[in-house]
Design a protein around this nucleic acid. Structure first.
Length: 422
RNA sequence: GGAGAGGUGCCGGAGUGGUCGAACGGGUCGGUCUCGAAAACCGAAGUACGGGCAACUGUACCGUGGGUUCGAAUCCCACCCUCUCCGCCA
C-alpha cells in the first residue's frame, strides 16, 4: 500500500512510477478523495468538539438542577449535521483505499525497463548447459517409466494439476525439502517455523494477495484461504506489531505445501508436475529495517542460489524488468534452473524486496533504537527453493540413458545412502 | 458442540453513564542524591488521523462492528479472541 502523504507530496512522481508498470495515472483520482475526506473530516471534528462541550455543560447544569433543553436541542441538531459529514468522509476514504490497494509497489530505480519477461536481464549463470550423449527425457517421462510418478491416480482422486509420487521419488521429494530446511536453519541463520496453511483475510490482504488476486487462491468454506506460499503466514508475523529494533532482522523459513488455483493458466504446462495446484516449497522471509533490506535481499538470493549450487544444478540469476516484477515487489531476482529434458530455463525461485509495501498493509512497525516514533518495517520473501521444481530439475539433470536417476551427493545421506533411483 | 468467566495503556490491575486518555502498582526513560551503584525522591512518556510555517491545537481509540443517549470504557445487540469445566476427536 502506498503512503497517501507521498502521493500528496509529489503526484507527478507517483504517476511516473505507475507508468513504469504500464499503469495509467491515478494520483488525481486519489487526491480528489483525499481532499474530500480531509475537508469533511475537519468540519465533522469541529462539530464534534462543540458537541463534546455541550455534553459537558449539560452534565454540569444537571448537577445544579438547571434547564438543559436548549443545549440538548443544539446537540441533536449537531448530531444530524455530523452524520452527513461522517458519511462523506467515510465514503471518500473507502474510495481512496479502493483505488490505492490495487496499485502495485513502486519499483526500485535500478529495475530495468521493459514490458514482459523478454526484457529481463540475466545477471549471471552458474554451471554449463549440459550436453548429454543421449536424448534427455522430461521428468514425467522418466517418472512414469520408473513407475514412481502417477498422474492417472492423481487425476482420479483429485483432478488435473495434481501428482502422486511413490517410492524413491516420494522419498527424494521429502529429502529435498528436509535438506533445504536444514541448510537455511543451520548455515544461513533462519529460524524454522511450522505455520498454519489456512489464513484469514487480514494476513492475505497484508501480503498483497487480496483483494486483487483472490481468484488465484483457494478459499475454505469457513472463509479462510489456503496459503499460496509460506510467505503469507511468515510475513504475517509482523502484522499489527511493533518490534524492537534489537530483534531485527527476523529471518524465518518454513517448508509447507502451497496451493494455487492457477486460474489464469489454463492450458499452460499441462504435462508433468511443473505447474500444480499443490506443491511443496521452502520459503524464506526476512522482516527488517529499511537500512538493512537492500543488503538482505542480496543475501537472501545468495541463500537460494546456494541450494541450487549444492544440488549441482545449472542456474542463472535474472533481474526482473518493470513489467515482470510482481505486484508487491519493488525489486525481484528470479533464479532459473536449466531443465535438460525440456531444454529450457524455468523459474525455481523468486526473491523479492517489498520494502514497506506489505508492512503498511499489515501495520507492521519497529521501534528504532535511536529517535522517536515507530517506523514501518521492510519485508522480503524468497523461495529457497520450490521443492517440486527442484525435484524436476534433479531428475532431468541427473538422468542416465537407461532412464535411471543418480541422487545428488548432498541428498544421499538423507536417502539412506542410496545413490541411484531405478 | 454444551455450560460458564473474561477481553482496559509496555505489564498487572481499578473504573459510579457526565471534567476518564483513563486511578493505583510495576517496568521504561530523564534528573536529584552517590566515588559508582542500589534504595529513596522528583519528573517524563501512547497510537492514528486532521488543522497550523511553528509553538501548539482538534478528533478518535478501553477486543471488533453496530445501537441507545445531550453524553458510553461503563447500557443493549452481533461477531472475534482467551480461559475453565463437560462432550467429541488426530
Amino acid at each position: 500500500m502506498h503512503d497517501i502523504r507521498a502521493v500528496r507530496a509529489d503526484p507527478a512522481a507517483f504517476d511516473a512510477a505507475l507508468a513504469r508498470r504500464g499503469i495509467a495515472p491515478a494520483s488525481a483520482a486519489i487526491l480528489a478523495r483525499d481532499e474530500a475526506r480531509r475537508t469533511a473530516q475537519t468540519a465533522q471534528q469541529e462539530k464534534q468538539a462543540r458537541r463534546n462541550a455541550i455534553a459537558k455543560e449539560i452534565g454540569m447544569a444537571k448537577r445544579q438542577g438547571g434547564d438543559t433543553a436548549a443545549l440538548e436541542a443544539e446537540a441533536i441538531a449537531l448530531r444530524d449535521e455530523m452524520a452527513a459529514l461522517e458519511t462523506t468522509a467515510a465514503e471518500a476514504e473507502r474510495e481512496q483505499t479502493a483505488l490505492l490497494e490495487v496499485l502495485p509497489n513502486t519499483l526500485d530505480p535500478e529495475v530495468p525497463d521493459g514490458a514482459d519477461e523478454t526484457a529481463n536481464v540475466v545477471l549471471h549463470q552458474h554451471g554449463e548447459i549440459p550436453s548429454l550423449a543421449f536424448q534427455p527425457k522430461q521428468h514425467f517421462e522418466l517418472g512414469e517409466a520408473l513407475g514412481l510418478m502417477d498422474f492417472a491416480t492423481a487425476t482420479k482422486i483429485a483432478g488435473a494439476r495434481f501428482t502422486v509420487l511413490k517410492g524413491a521419488l516420494a522419498q527424494l521429494e521429502r529429502a529435498l525439502g528436509q535438506w533445504m530446511l536444514a541448510l537455511h536453519t543451520e548455515e544461513h541463520g533462519y529460524t524454522e517455523a511450522s505455520v498454519p496453511l489456512l489464513v484469514n483475510d487480514a494476513v492475505a490482504y497484508g501480503t498483497d494477495k487480496l483483494p486483487k488476486f483472490a481468484d488465484d487462491l483457494f478459499r475454505t468454506t469457513d472463509g479462510r484461504w489456503l496459503i499460496p506460499t509460506a510467505e503469507v503466514p511468515l510475513t504475517g508475523f509482523a502484522m499489527d506489531t511493533i518490534i524492537p529494533e534489537a530483534d531485527l532482522p527476523m529471518r524465518l523459513t518454513a517448508l509447507t505445501p502451497c496451493f494455487r488455483s492457477e486460474a489464469g493458466s489454463a492450458g499452460r504446462d499441462t504435462r508433468g508436475m511443473l505447474r500444480q495446484h499443490q506443491f511443496w516449497k521452502v520459503e524464506m522471509v526476512t522482516i527488517t529495517t529499511p537500512e538493512q533490506s537492500v543488503e538482505e535481499h542480496e543475501r537472501m538470493t545468495r541463500c537460494a542460489e546456494r541450494v541450487l549450487t549444492d544440488l549441482g544444478l545449472t542456474w542463472r540469476r535474472v533481474f526482473l524488468c518493470a513489467g515482470d516484477t510482481g505486484f508487491g515487489a519493488a525489486r525481484t531476482y528470479d533464479l532459473e534452473v536449466w531443465l535438460p529434458g525440456q531444454q529450457a530455463w524455468r523459474e525455481i525461485s523468486s526473491c523479492s524486496n517489498t520494502r514497506d509495501f506489505q508492512a503498511r498493509r499489515m501495520n507492521g512497525r519497529f521501534k528504532p533504537k535511536e529517535g522517536k516514533g515507530n517506523v514501518f518495517l521492510h519485508t522480503l520473501n524468497g523461495s529457497g527453493v520450490a521443492v517440486g521444481r527442484a525435484l524436476i530439475a534433479v531428475m532431468e539433470t541427473y538422468q542416465n540413458e537407461d532412464g535411471s536417476i543418480r541422487i545428488p551427493a548432498v541428498l544421499q545421506p538423507i536417502m539412506g545412502g542410496r545413490e541411484k533411483i531405478g
